[in-house]
Every structure is written in C-alpha cells, then in structure tokens.
Computed example of a mutant assay.
Amino acid sequence: MTSDREREEAPPSSRKAKATPERASATEAMRGAARQLAELLGRVPESVSALKPTDDGWEAEVEVVELERVPDTSSVMASYKVVLDPAGQLVAYERTGRYTRAQVDRNRQGR
C-alpha cells in the first residue's frame, strides 16, 4: 500500500499521462476519409472535393457514385460529409446530397 506522502513525491514520469494522438497530415486525412468511407459504404469514392481542419480533427466532403447509369453522365452521385478525429480516424459521416454526374453547379440546383 502506498502512503499519501509517497504518492505526492512520485516523479512525474511515473504518473500516467494521457497521450495526445499525433495530428494526421492533410494528405493522410484525405486518403483516410476516402478509404474508411469506402469500407462502410461498399463503394469506391470518386473524389474528395473538400477537406478542412477543425478543432476536433478534420472534415471532408467525399463524392461517391450511388447508381451507375448509361450514359455515364446520368449516373447518380452523392456527397458525404466525413468527420475524422485528429489522427484521421472516421468518427461520423452523413450523406448531404444527391445529384446527377452531368449537373455542373450543384449549389445553384438547390442541393
């Protein structure tokens, strides 16, 4: 049993410190967002159209083909918001919109 005095005098190195994960680089976060979302959806993402650092890690927008059609320009695409922790691990995702591949400016189409 350790006395109160021994606990107070314990060197800092013997105390358990909470390790802070190293922050993933932008490239690692981008690749991680696409790879991890592919694992969850079972579809390979077309691209990562946005990536930004946040106080809690990273936030990415990933484009995925939801329904392949012929011609290719009529395929149905989806945008997913992907939230990553500082180390680049996926913690949340949500589909934010759907559109056809031929749609040029999604923002003006009421996405």
Rank of each mutant, 00 (worst) to 15 (best):
T2K: 08
W58D: 00
P45T: 08
R31E: 10
T54H: 05
K52F: 11
K18H: 12
D85S: 08
P21I: 10
Q89A: 09
A10G: 05
E28T: 08
R69M: 13
E6P: 08
R98C: 00
V91R: 07
G110K: 09
A10K: 07
A87F: 06
Q103E: 14
A50E: 04
A50T: 04
E6Y: 04
V62P: 07
L41D: 15
A87P: 12
E8P: 08
L51G: 11
E6A: 07
T20G: 00
T54W: 01
V104N: 05
M30L: 04
Q36R: 10
Q36N: 14
R31M: 07
E22Q: 04
M1W: 10
D72K: 14
A87V: 03
E9A: 13
R98D: 11
V48A: 03
E39D: 15
T73H: 11
R98H: 08
R106L: 10
E61L: 15
A87K: 10
R23C: 03
L51T: 12
G42Y: 01
A33C: 11
Y99V: 05
G88Q: 12
D72V: 12
Q89R: 08
R106M: 06
V76T: 09
V62N: 03
G32D: 07
A92W: 13
T54A: 00
D4I: 00
L90I: 11
E6F: 05
M30G: 02
P11E: 15
S79D: 15
Y93M: 03
V70M: 00
E66A: 13
R15V: 04
R108T: 07
R98Y: 06
T73I: 13
S3V: 06
G32W: 02
R108L: 09
E66C: 04
A78L: 01
Y93N: 02
E63W: 01
P45V: 11
K18G: 10
P12Y: 06
P21G: 08
R95I: 07
V48D: 01
A24K: 05
A29E: 05
R98N: 08
R101W: 10
R15W: 08
A102C: 06
T96M: 06
E9N: 15
M1A: 13
A78T: 02
G97F: 01
D55C: 00
A92Y: 09
D85R: 02
K81Q: 13
L51N: 02
V64R: 03
W58A: 00
L67Q: 14
L84K: 04
